[in-house]
Design a protein around this nucleic acid. Structure first.
Length: 252
DNA sequence: AAGCCCGTCAACCGCCCGACT
DNA sequence: AAGTCGGGCGGTTGACGGGCT
């Protein structure tokens, strides 16, 4: 049984948005807020598909968007994040305030790909082109490590493991293969209240990086014993909750 | 001036996933 | 458990503009 279409295609406009349509959409969202994109076009008096409205708002009309050229720092950050996350544009965009997944995806395909190729790096694998040509396809699989771990102790979750999770091992492997890329885990989760514990009514103490990743019991945890319950097992990049299925992270 | 090529980027499409019933 | 729905994501398309011949 197929899905019903998201809107009545016969009576919707397609293609470039007009100024008037933009104004209507902005005015409606300012008055009523985001949400319920399906019913928004009718309520806002737009002959557009709800999805189209959402895209237009998120990628173009949102007031917090940072338009304009990407800085060199942003370039390098995108490259590093892509080497870790692959084509997870929304996750990458989450680390670049004011940038959208669509914008980054386009920028990658039009600028960064070429930039990496000029450097002699395969943009898909982040390895030297000569090396990529030899090894046609290499899959970095988290699944094997995860499966063997599961078999060892199916009741043990990540935070109670004495050994580092596969994520770390894979990153190390990538660093060895791409000495020119610094993939040291400097990427941090966005600011979260749960990264801090209250020491005084007005003071807060930062949790260590291990705890932020959900590795409270790791050897390197430096804030053992002073971690609040609410900080237990932060879901970095959605690895725990499965928002980001690490088994699908392949470097082809 | 006209035609062609190519790069850029806004927008669309199809699929997936979680929530809900 | 299965179906439906809304929202989100990644891949792809196509319009447009600039440069070149």
């Amino acid at each position: 049984m197929g899905r019903s279409p998201c809107c009545e295609k016969a009576h919707t406009n397609k293609g470039a948005w007009t100024k008037e349509e933009d104004d209507r959409l902005v005015a409606y969202i300012k008055a009523h807020g985001e949400g319920c994109w399906r019913s928004l076009p009718k309520a806002a008096g737009l002959l557009r598909c709800g999805k189209s409205c959402r895209l237009r708002w998120i990628n173009y009309l949102r007031p917090d968007l940072k338009r304009g050229n990407f800085s060199d720092d942003e370039d390098e950050l995108i490259i590093k994040l892509h080497s870790l996350l692959g084509n997870k544009w929304s996750l990458i965009a989450g680390r670049l305030p004011g940038r959208t997944d669509n914008e980054i995806k386009n920028y990658w395909n039009t600028h960064i790909r070429r930039k990496l190729l000029n450097r002699g790096i395969d943009p898909a694998t982040h390895r030297p082109l000569s090396e990529s040509a030899q090894a046609s396809t290499t899959t970095i699989s988290f699944a094997a490590a995860a499966c063997s771990r599961d078999q060892e102790d199916s009741k043990t979750d990540v935070k109670s493991l004495a050994t580092p999770p596969p994520t770390v091992a894979v990153v190390k492997k990538e660093v060895e293969k791409c000495p020119d890329l610094n993939l040291e885990l400097r990427i941090s989760p966005p600011y979260q209240e749960q990264f801090y514990r209250e020491t005084t009514p007005s003071g807060k103490e930062e949790l260590c990086f291990d705890c932020r990743l959900g590795l409270e019991s790791s050897r390197d945890c430096s804030c053992r014993g002073r971690r609040p319950e609410s900080a237990a097992g932060f879901d970095f990049l959605g690895l725990k909750s499965g928002v980001l299925d690490y088994r699908s992270l392949e470097m082809k």
